[in-house]
Nucleic acid binder design. Structure first.
Lengths: 232, 232
DNA sequence: GCGAAGTTTTGAACACGTTCAAGACGGTCG
DNA sequence: CGACCGTCTTGAACGTGTTCAAAACTTCGC
């Protein structure tokens, strides 16, 4: 989810002066979130740090939650860049998938402490920060596109029906990794790395087995399921 | 998760009078949550409805979140009872699993509207309402026990390594269903029913395939993974 | 320059969850 | 009965996110 939360423009600033104020507020928020955590950072403190009034912060950002999206966007961009480096290097599906998932963990590591705090908001289906919300559709699609690259540039051959759904399924798997990571209290979230290291071979084997006649039935079930659940 | 959140005793009331006050507060909260939703129900309103002061509500319940646990407990008990009825009827693994999962949807249906609102809290790893928190360990174990029954009383034969982990894996699958349900906006959450109807056969087939030599490798991987992730 | 129509900025005010010092109650022992 | 002690209850007060009417500033046609 954290990968996928999109930019909501809020009132697009008209003058360059306004743009300056806007980024001043966003950056003050960043600094304080990083230093103090989400909950312990107050809107008043953000305004003070940015040298504006609290009302002004609300002029640019609809809520405290909205200030988090800048954070998300930065992470998303960083991850996309890191993923690109991985995909230029690796050719096997297994290595590409592992690399992309581990890259996310690398990008996210410095932010683990407060991630849980605003993850709470992302988990609210009604929140614009939810990975399934319309607001985050662009970022979500960008993220699915990365996994499309993971598959497209690889040596993997899978059943045709599965092939179409695979990028989205991998994105879902990544959401699973994120969920696990949020709950991961091991030092430096090493456990999440273990999770990736061990889940990736399983996914690889499952995908390759998908062309086996015995397994075919299950695969069709899964694909049908995903299809049935997508459309309204 | 909603199944699994356990009772935190708070200060156990000493006198019957106190017990009366405590339940008055809990029931007032129930009524208002049901009528107005979680967010729009204020602690002041709960206290007024219960005929006590706001400070008194905090004497019995550490926070607004804690008031939700009574809700969870009620659902957990209802679900356990419903599950028992199903398990008395059905013998095949598939039917037992389906019945238990659908029973949860039945129990939960009236509460869908506000479930999302407090699910936000449950998703916070630091919250006592999180399904992985120590506070909810008892309820979680009770819920895993239900799935142990699902397997134990059935016709299912699976690989030995998997057999041990299966109840917990099924519990995790149920958490997945809950997650889906929370996000489900279809009328009466019919989509969640479809999910269950279609996922259960897949799980059944996968479990039975687990003894096949080709699939065996994947199964061992999964089991090893779960084991590796459990201990600190 | 001048006034009008935006745009940006302000800070007091609101409602909420939560805390806490103080008091009321209820049983028990001398 | 009376003084005491732990349980229970109160409501004012605090700090928070958020709102809003008003003020300041900017831009532009005239």
């Amino acid at each position: 989810m954290l990968t996928t939360l999109g930019a909501v423009p809020d009132p697009a600033p008209r003058s360059p002066k306004a743009e300056q104020t806007r980024t001043a507020i966003a950056e003050a928020a960043m600094r304080l979130f990083r230093a103090e955590g989400y909950d312990r950072t107050t809107m008043r403190a953000i305004a003070r740090e940015a040298g504006v009034s609290v009302g002004n912060a609300y002029y640019y950002f609809g809520s405290k939650e909205h200030l988090v999206q800048a954070f998300y966007d930065r992470m998303q961009v960083e991850h996309a860049a890191a993923a690109e480096r991985v995909l230029a290097e690796e050719r096997t599906f297994e290595a590409r998938l592992r690399g992309v998932l581990l890259a996310w963990l690398d990008v996210a590591r410095p932010h683990h402490a407060f991630a849980g705090q605003f993850f709470r908001n992302a988990a609210d289906p009604a929140s614009p920060l939810s990975p399934f919300s319309p607001e985050s559709a662009p970022a979500r699609e960008a993220s699915v596109a990365v996994f499309e690259q993971v598959v497209a540039g690889s040596d993997l051959k899978v059943a045709a029906g599965l092939r179409r759904e695979l990028p989205e399924l991998l994105w879902l798997a990544q959401m699973g990794v994120v969920l696990f990571w949020v709950y991961d209290t091991s030092p430096d979230q090493q456990r999440s790395r273990v999770l990736v290291e061990r889940v990736v071979p399983v996914v690889d084997r499952l995908a390759r087995l998908s062309r086996l006649p015995v397994v075919r039935g299950v695969v069709d079930d899964v694909v049908g399921l995903v299809g049935a659940l997508r459309a309204p």
